[in-house]
């Protein structure tokens, strides 16, 4: 006998956990599943400074835990480290197979699978992943105590994570394709005045080199097309995100950007299937906009189920 829920939320980031808080408080039987532990991208964000209600910075891992505990307090069930191995979301009753071993049913599904770090797509990247290349400063920063490292990117994540990495590294060189940063002015000026941070504007990575572990990053100066090899102990890549749409792509037509188009009420083309958070087509992707999406999706699902 399959376990039955009113709502299954796929993805336990801010959007999903907020949807779960609202759904569970409305007395809907609510299950949240995630391939990882709760928090989405927030759980590996070092500090969050712009989420209302926290006048002091809060660690991303703590905020994640707080979201999850709040959802659980209202009765939402959160399943961690679970993989969806089969799914059928089109029918009136939707089914999801978990870890090839059990099937759950729900009449409404809210997909909040978010986005993941965009890979650079240059030669050597796959080879040196975990051997010098990282996409998570919180996870791997401590490996680079006293080392000379590089950060790729120039947006908020790149600049803020570069600042975080100065706690460990001896030097951090930021490689950015444009001639100036796209990050918030406050972080930019902090980075530009940090004695450990150097910046290489107008350069793009072209390849990674090394024997068994990463040894050098090859960059190209965009103006002169001159290439050079920079010796490095490690490279952190923060060049934006790509949506996680593996699940939904089977049911809906993705926008050219790869994201999922919804109505203002977070509805997809499939009745009873909602999408919320960073996976959606929208201009701004913040924790605050994700929780707003999650709220709306849960309220819309609640109306749909009535």
């Amino acid at each position: 006998m399959n376990e039955r829920y009113d709502v299954v939320v796929i993805g336990a980031g801010p959007a999903g956990l907020t949807a779960a808080i609202y759904a569970a408080r409305a007395r809907l039987r609510t299950l949240v599943i995630d391939e990882s532990i709760p928090g989405g991208q927030v759980k590996t964000t070092h500090k969050v400074s712009n989420y209302p209600g926290f006048p002091e910075d809060i660690h991303g891992s703590e905020l994640s835990l707080a979201f999850a505990r709040q959802a659980e307090r209202f009765g939402a069930k959160i399943r961690r480290s679970v993989e969806i191995t089969a799914h059928d979301l089109a029918p009136f009753v939707k089914t999801l197979e978990l870890d090839e071993s059990e099937t759950v049913e729900a009449r409404a599904v809210i997909v909040t699978t978010g986005a993941k770090p965009r890979p650079l797509g240059v030669p050597g990247e796959d080879t040196f992943k975990g051997r010098g290349i990282s996409y998570c400063a919180t996870c791997d920063g401590a490996y680079f105590e006293g080392k000379d490292i590089h950060v790729i990117g120039g947006g908020n994540s790149a600049v803020e994570e570069a600042l975080f990495l100065t706690q460990f590294a001896r030097s951090v060189t930021i490689v950015h394709q444009f001639e100036q940063f796209q990050a918030e002015p406050a972080s930019v000026s902090e980075a530009l005045t940090n004695p450990k941070i150097q910046v290489l504007f107008g350069h793009e990575p072209r390849a990674f080199h090394g024997e068994t572990a990463l040894e050098a990053l090859e960059v190209e100066a965009l103006r002169t097309q001159e290439r050079k090899r920079l010796p490095t102990d490690g490279v952190f890549v923060f060049i934006g995100m790509v949506p996680r749409t593996d699940l939904l792509a089977r049911y809906v037509k993705l926008a050219p950007s790869g994201y999922v188009k919804t109505t203002d009420d977070m509805e997809t083309e499939i009745p009873g299937v909602y999408a919320a958070g960073d996976i959606r087509v929208k201009r701004f992707r913040q924790i605050t906009t994700a929780v707003a999406d999650g709220t709306i999706a849960a309220l819309a699902a609640q109306k749909y189920l009535r």
Binding site: E35, S36, K116, K129, G130, R131, C139, Y143, F144, L214
Partner: peptide, 26 residues
């Protein structure tokens, strides 16, 4: 072993590393 990221899974057979390592969130 050149491991610079957590988690990293390394596979061994007959005293030698074999196959591709698995690493990271996914």
């Amino acid at each position: 072993l050149g491991v610079t990221g957590s988690p990293t899974l390394v596979f061994f057979k007959g005293g030698r590393e074999v196959g591709a390592r698995m690493t990271g969130e996914d």
